[in-house]
Nucleic acid binder design. Structure first.
Length: 229
DNA sequence: AAATCGATGCTCT
DNA sequence: GAGCATCGATTTT
């Protein structure tokens, strides 16, 4: 048993805390004998009840979003746009979950590339770069072979196929920004600072804008390299 | 580098 | 029938 595997208590924290805490940690997927690993570099928090952008807004509780109400550390996989999946982990408040938006591929890169290429919608057949494997919520699902039928409702604190591990310690600067793809819920909730990512990391789905870069360049002076390729 | 836009089909009302 | 926590290609600065 791996002692660094995340336990229930690690997930049983407020949603915003879990979203920040997961940055830099390792998502591990085991498929048969192959291990896929990626460092989490971008997350978003979706609170329950009051959060207009959340599937659980106003206590909404459907069959699809049921995992948001299950024990902290439950995998919530849902389908979007009819063809893509997004992967979340439930947190302390009932109806809350953290969306994983991007990974830095660490292990099993060739397998990830195969999973991505075989499910690609685009006609282009040019080789995927490492930074293109997991730089988006649905891309990381494809790369890690995470679908609703094989991963939804997994208890990640007690699973041999999907879990979180502490990674090697490394320094990075956390950037906070508004969440992506939810503009229709109105400015108040669309603009909440509920997205977190590792500064200057090339595996993030949407790169830093100039304002963020300037802000972070001031914070970063004590750190040398935040995220090597 | 950024903005725009079509594809695509499940989920909920 | 409407809407969608996206992706990837195309078009525009």
């Amino acid at each position: 048993m791996n002692p660094s595997k995340y336990m229930r208590k690690d997930y049983n924290v407020p949603c915003l805390d879990l979203a920040k805490k997961l940055l830099g940690k390792i998502l591990v997927r085991k498929i048969g004998d192959t291990l896929l690993k990626g460092r989490i570099v971008e997350t978003e928090a979706y609170l329950g009840n009051e959060d207009k952008a959340s599937h659980s807004y106003n206590g909404r509780r459907t069959n699809a979003c049921e995992p948001m109400y299950m024990d902290p550390g439950t995998a919530y996989v849902y389908m979007t746009y009819g063809i893509y999946f997004c992967f979340n982990i439930s947190s302390q408040e009932p109806g809350s979950a953290v969306l994983l938006r991007s990974l830095h591929p660490i292990e099993g890169i060739e397998e990830m590339k195969k999973f991505r290429t075989s499910q690609r919608k685009g006609k282009s057949s040019k080789e995927l770069k490492i930074t293109e494997l997991c730089n988006g919520p649905s891309k990381l699902c494809m790369a890690m072979n995470i679908r609703k039928d094989n991963c939804n409702k997994i208890d990640m604190s007690n699973s041999e196929e999907l879990w979180i591990e502490d990674g090697m310690d490394f320094n990075f600067v956390t950037v906070t920004s508004s969440r992506i793809g939810i503009s229709s819920v109105g400015v108040e909730w669309a603009s909440k600072p509920f997205r977190f990512y590792i500064f200057n990391c090339p595996h993030v789905s949407k790169r830093d804008n100039k304002a963020e870069v300037e802000l972070c360049n001031k914070k970063i002076e004590n750190y040398s390299n935040s995220c090597d390729l």
